[in-house]
Each structure stands twice: as C-alpha cells, then as structure tokens.
C-alpha cells in the first residue's frame, strides 16, 4: 500500500551544513514490507552478547575512538528541576567536554559534543549559551516522555521549539499505535511531525522498552523511517529499560534495509543506559561493522547520554598519563 510521500525537491533544500548525504524524505507506507519484517529475539540476543568480545580497540586507537564518542554525544539534561543555570553549565561542558591539557596532549583541541538536548523551556538558554559554536540544540518534544497530550498540542510544540532555535527535535511516538499494530496511525503521526519540524532534524524516539518485542521495534523503526525520520532513537531515558545492544542491532538492521531499498541514510541514536567508555566503544564498533563509516559521524549517529562523558574523561586522562584517574579532576557539566 502506498500513500503520498514528501517530494524529494522539497527535501533537497533542507540540508544542514554538516549533512554529507541527502536527507531522508520518507516514502509511502508500505504495509507489505512492514508485515514481512522479522526479528528473532534469541538470535539477536546471541549476536549482541558476543559483540563486546569480537571487537577491541587499544591504546592510541582507543583514545581516538573515545574522542569520537564525545563528538557524538547529545549531552542531555531532562529533569524537572532543570534551571537556566544548570543548562548553561551543561552548555559550557559541551563546548569544552575534556580538560584542555588533555585535549592538547591528544592533539584533539576544539573537540565538542555533538549537541545539547533539553526540554523546550530551556531551548533559548541553550541556544544563547552555545552562540558562536556550531553545536546544535535539540529539544525533546511532542509531550515527552509519554506522548499522550493532544496531537494538535504535540504538533504545535514542535513549531514552538523550532522557532525558539532548536535545530533538532526529538519526538516521541505513540507507543499505543505500535502495540495495536496501527501502522497507518503511526505513519500519519510521524509524517505530520516531520512536516512540523521543517528544516529541523527529527529524531523519532521509539521508547523501545515499552514496545514489548523486538519485532515491534523493527517494524516501528521502519514505519518511522517511511514517515520521514532523520534519526531513529531508542528511548526517552525515562523507561525502565533504555538502549540495549539487542534493540540497537534490531534498529540498525532496519536502517540498513531502509537504505538498501530507498537509498536514504537514516541516523541512529541509542539513549539511556550507556554510561561506560567501554560500552561506547562497543556501540561504535557495532555501527562501523553493521552500517559503516558514515554512521560514525554526528549527522548519522548520536549517543543520548549524561554520565558517559565523565567515564570517558577519566579513560582519556589514563591514556595520557598512564595513571588511573579520579572524577574530581574533571570539570562538572
């Protein structure tokens, strides 16, 4: 079944400067394709379990990979007690994620995180705080995290955030559409949200911890890409289970299939639960092996993380000095 899709002409103009590839315009909703998608949980789990043992990066390579991980972090604060002061502090950390002497020793001066991710109310503060950098501000939107406010309000919220200066919008999907296999509704909603995003890039948060099965994750990933997602993202960080390797494998396989069928590259953002440098390396190896080098750049891959950076900083100091580090030697975000 085909429905109308965004015209390619319209999307061509919508490229951000950092974008090395055509933005995904979405396609019609192909229900036959959606129905044919399979995900064998046990096999996926077994593959995921061996991933950390199959790849290893050491010494200078590890340091470089960890710097890469920093460059891919959406440094995030999504708390009810966020204030302007808190957000400014985080933005400062995004500009200077690692102590200057360490970056100098590594020859990695100028390293920043990929973006700052905040609630709508904090967008203006973040935009102001990041002025003069090319670090975009991402706003979570559409009734984050549950996505159960009125559709009209959710759409309007996107527009508000874009107008406030957010260049990226992390929307949440309606989990109920997935759980009831109402792919048309999910597609229509995603399309409407993509329209509302305009030039801002849309990350669709699947809240995979609430979708029940990997098969649902795979199918929802595909429908979101058909609906024009620039990124598919695992979690809000508020579910009890967030990003996992099996979920990631499922979603990036969907990305690969989507690219094979349409030629469009869609980004991936695991969020929540990635707090160790070693985990970040595993994710990077996964992206490199399963999708390739383009997915090691911020236009196609992000970590949604808050505490990951701290662990990486300690590892980098260890690499530079040969001594195990301490948290208090690195600036707070």
């Amino acid at each position: 079944m085909q429905t109308d899709s965004l015209s390619p002409a319209k999307t061509a103009a919508h490229q951000l400067p950092q974008l090395a590839h055509a933005r995904n315009p979405g396609t019609g909703l192909d229900l036959d394709w959606v129905a044919s998608v399979q995900a064998n949980t046990s096999a996926i789990e077994r593959r995921a379990a061996t991933l950390p043992g199959r790849r290893s990066v050491k010494k200078a390579y590890q340091a470089a990979w960890l710097c890469k991980a920093i460059s891919l972090i959406d440094l995030t604060t999504l708390s009810g007690d966020d204030t302007e002061g808190r957000v400014k502090r985080l933005c400062a950390k995004a500009r200077q994620p690692v102590r200057a002497d360490l970056l100098e020793a590594l020859g990695m001066e100028g390293l920043t995180t990929a973006a700052i991710c905040v609630y709508h109310e904090m967008v203006p503060t973040a935009v102001a705080a990041l002025e003069g950098t090319n670090i975009p501000v991402a706003a979570v939107s559409t009734g984050f995290p549950a996505g159960l406010s009125p559709l009209k309000t959710r759409i309007a919220e996107i527009g508000e955030s874009v107008r406030a200066g957010a260049r990226e919008i992390d929307i949440v999907i309606s989990r109920r559409h997935v759980l009831t296999q109402n792919w048309q509704a999910l597609y229509d909603e995603t399309r409407a949200m993509r329209e509302a995003c305009g030039e801002a890039h849309m990350k669709t948060i699947l809240a995979t911890g609430e979708l029940g099965t990997l098969r649902n994750v795979a199918r929802a990933s595909l429908v979101c890409m058909m609906g024009g997602a620039d990124f598919i993202k695992t979690s809000t960080g508020k579910e009890s289970v967030n990003a996992t390797l099996p979920v990631s494998l499922t979603m990036i396989r969907a990305i690969r299939d989507y690219e094979a069928a349409t030629g469009f590259k869609v980004g991936y953002k695991p969020a929540g639960g990635i707090s160790k440098a070693k985990d970040a390396l595993t994710y990077l190896a996964l992206m490199k092996d399963e999708l390739g080098h383009p997915w090691l750049q911020p236009d196609l891959f992000r970590f949604g993380a808050s505490s990951l950076l701290g662990d990486i900083e300690r590892q980098l100091e260890h690499h530079v000095t040969g001594r195990y580090s301490a948290a208090n030697r690195h600036a707070m975000g």
Binding site: R55, V57, A60, Y61, A63, A64, W65, G107, M108, A285
Partner: peptide, 16 residues
C-alpha cells in the same frame, strides 16, 4: 597515526 588521524579514519588498531 595521530589521534586526530585515527579519529577521522576510525580504523581498528592492533589489539594483540
């Protein structure tokens, strides 16, 4: 390779 070069290439180094 410098850290910067590996950062760009994202190659796997030796891990013996």
């Amino acid at each position: 390779m410098t850290t910067r070069e590996i950062f760009d290439a994202m190659s796997y180094g030796p891990a013996p």
